[in-house]
């Protein structure tokens, strides 16, 4: 990429904040994959908002005599083991998956960001404490940590989001901390300090705007992981409880019928696959465009 890190930092510092964003998005337009992925994400988002209204049938309405029906015009994705319309359930599940992904990433972003800024800015014992805690959490594989947390809190959609969120905190702490470390010693921080600004103001008014870009990009990438992890927990029966239409749980319900009724697994799994893929490409493109420091 063409720009140097200092220039980006300055751009972030300057009053023309919107400018770099627009510039970045213009750069991203050249990346066709990212544009397609962005459109796909927007489409999924649209479905998440209006999907349940578009659903031709009630996603929890059972009709056992017609169970395992193959895809038809009326039920484009067929019916599941209780005769529910899989198309309607996949549509309704979009909202659940988005919701889970956003909340979980939000939890990680908020706590990870705050801890990272505090650790990076103050340094010393506080940094040491937070960093070692993060090291300990990083020692667990992320998903295993999430499973452990759900096991402790009990299954359910809320606990599942908390678990996925908490298990993603360490990565956000690390990212934020390393960025803050580099900004802490820069002139604008010194200037703010010299003019008598309090620590809190320096951290959240002067340093934070500079780490928002990378954090935003990382969050987009992390969203896909969070959605996948939440679906994974539901697949294991630890997340959304029946009859909530959740893609992972739907795939789990279908796995016993995989050979004779593959449509039960195929559609929810494809939905997970597409959404995660779209978020990955989008996050990738966003990073290239907005945060060239991190690209290869």
């Amino acid at each position: 990429m063409t720009e140097k890190p200092e220039q980006v930092a300055k751009a972030g510092l300057s009053a023309r904040k919107g400018h770099w964003l627009i510039e970045g998005l213009q750069r991203m337009r050249k990346n066709r994959g990212a544009v397609v992925a962005g459109c796909a994400v927007l489409m999924f988002l649209f479905l998440a908002i209006v999907g349940p209204m578009l659903a031709p049938h009630d996603p929890v309405d059972t009709d056992p005599p017609n169970r395992f029906e193959r895809p038809t015009l009326e039920h484009p994705f067929g019916r599941d083991h209780l005769g529910r319309c899989i198309f309607s359930r996949v549509l309704a599940g979009t909202r659940v998956s988005f919701f889970q992904g956003f909340i979980a990433t939000g939890i990680a972003l908020f706590f990870g960001g705050v801890l990272g800024i505090v650790a990076g800015y103050y340094g010393g014992v506080l940094d040491h404490l937070i960093s070692r805690l993060v090291d300990v959490m990083m020692a667990f594989p992320g998903f295993l940590l999430a499973v452990t947390i759900v096991a402790a809190l009990g299954p359910g959609i809320v606990n599942c989001m908390i678990a996925v969120g908490v298990s993603s905190i360490p990565r956000f702490v690390r990212l934020t901390r390393s960025d803050v470390l580099s900004f802490r010693e820069q002139e604008f921080t010194e200037a703010a300090r010299a003019s008598g600004a309090k620590d809190f103001r320096i951290m959240f008014r002067h340093i934070l705007p500079n780490v928002v870009g990378p954090l935003g990009v990382y969050s987009t990438l992390r969203l896909s992981t969070a959605i996948l992890a939440a679906a994974g927990l539901s697949f294991l029966g630890l997340g959304a409880q029946p009859p909530t239409p959740e893609w992972g749980a739907m795939a789990a319900a279908g796995r016993g019928h995989l050979i004779r009724h593959p449509h039960m697994v195929l559609f929810p799994a494809a939905a997970i696959f597409l959404l995660v893929l779209a978020f990955n490409f989008l996050g990738d493109g966003l990073r290239d465009a907005l945060d060239p420091r991190q690209s290869d």
Binding site: R171, L221, T225, L228, F273, N280, G283, D284
Partner: peptide, 10 residues
């Protein structure tokens, strides 16, 4: 690595 990992998993 993280991003690739997610992609590969999917």
């Amino acid at each position: 690595d993280d991003r690739r990992l997610a992609l590969v998993c999917a």
